[in-house]
Design a protein around this nucleic acid. Structure first.
Lengths: 225, 225
DNA sequence: TCGCTCCATAATTTCGAAATTATAGGCAAG
DNA sequence: CTTGCCTATAATTTCGAAATTATGGAGCGA
């Protein structure tokens, strides 16, 4: 699927995806200038698709466009993260309530399946929790997206993905101390349980604590600077 | 100010602003194909800045980009409007509460001033209410933006503007029967009063009714089709 | 008549270079 | 020694055209 989309897309779309991943992963560091000539030769493409991709990225606020002065990767700081956090908390809460209210049986089944796939995977690739399992990370994202997709709402979906991208960048770059695998597994299990019972109030409580739990680790690193 | 920015900007930024306005005003009709060659000669620019502008617009969902098949103005329909409505209601409610909680004295003064400017203007240019006063429309937008800007929050600001743009397009194109000027004036006065008293609960109630009032007129036209 | 393939045309996408604008470093004046 | 201007350089922005891909219609066979 990913390959098919990669093959079908235009150069501008392909480079957009790669730039987005590289910004989120930290390959392109926060605050750094995006020298067009360097990127052009580095990614092996022309000026036009590169600029088109950068403008699209600038609309997600992962990079900033400055007229006549090129592009820059957005910086990281505590104030920004707090905005991502509060917005994410509020948006996901609303989306979860909507989903539980409007989601049908097929959606419930998909949530359960996404949860099963997630629980079957080990969270870390190394014993000491220093290396995150990339397959787990994808399954984790799929699970959370699934829980919020009961009522199809493309505006909120778009905004949610934007917030998730920004959040991921903080986690990838600040590398907070690894979370307890058992705790996360329990959160996910309880969240799934509440959703399947259509207990919106409980589901929201669990989700909010889940988000704050992850946020605390990131903010601890941010405040140390 | 607008002139200074216009002069300083790149061609791509200027054309972005013009395209955005033309989509919102309905000059470029919903669902229509954006023929690149026609736009290029029509706006008198080259292919590169035009495409860059269109990609930026596509990130706001006012136009859709389809790989290898060009660009299209987003369509209008009831389901979409309902999503804009519900998201706007929720987002503006939260932003208003934040503003009243965190806004300082300078912000309160700015709200009062924006309200004064708005109240001094007539809403319609024609007696029968068939032609909206464009100066009023700008002042109206300024007023509402001001009420929500007490706690600077660039993510929510960006999303709020996106929703406002989409909303404006529905109002401009569907031309619902004109609202009672006296009712709107009273809404704005009461909203301002509640904000100055830092009565968040009351302010939210007024704002929510204000939004629903405008939405009802638009949805009536949408359902008639 | 319907469906399919193939071709001509039109459209989008991409490139390479020219034009424009920012930037850093030297030079002169105070 | 500092400040401001000016120039050389580097970077961004824009253009025009080539390359690639989609589209509509004619022709053919079922």
């Amino acid at each position: 699927m990913s390959d098919a989309r990669e093959a079908a897309a235009t150069l501008a779309s392909r480079i957009y995806g790669r730039l987005r991943e590289d910004v989120i992963a930290g390959v392109l560091p926060p605050g750094s200038k995006l020298a067009l000539d360097r990127l052009r030769s580095q990614y092996g493409i022309g000026m036009t698709p590169l600029r088109e991709a950068l403008y699209r990225l600038s609309a997600t606020l992962l990079v900033e466009a400055h007229d006549q002065r090129g592009f820059r990767v957005a910086a990281l700081n505590l104030a920004h993260f707090e905005q991502v956090l509060s917005t994410r908390e509020r948006l996901e809460t609303l989306m979860l309530e909507d989903s539980i209210r409007a989601g049908d049986a097929a959606w419930l089944r998909q949530v359960a399946e996404a949860h099963d796939r997630l629980q079957a995977l080990p969270m870390y690739a190394a014993r000491d929790g220093s290396v995150l399992n990339l397959v787990w990370r994808q399954a984790h994202q799929d699970f959370h997206y699934q829980t919020l997709s009961g009522s199809r709402h493309f505006l909120q979906d778009m905004f949610h993905q934007l917030l998730w991208d920004h959040w991921s960048r903080y986690r990838n770059l600040l590398r907070p101390p690894p979370l307890e695998e058992a705790v996360l597994k329990q959160d996910h299990a309880r969240l799934t349980e509440a959703i399947l019972a259509r207990d919106a109030e409980m589901a929201v409580l669990i989700l909010r604590r889940h988000i704050r739990h992850g946020a605390a680790a990131i903010m601890a690193v941010l405040q140390r600077e």
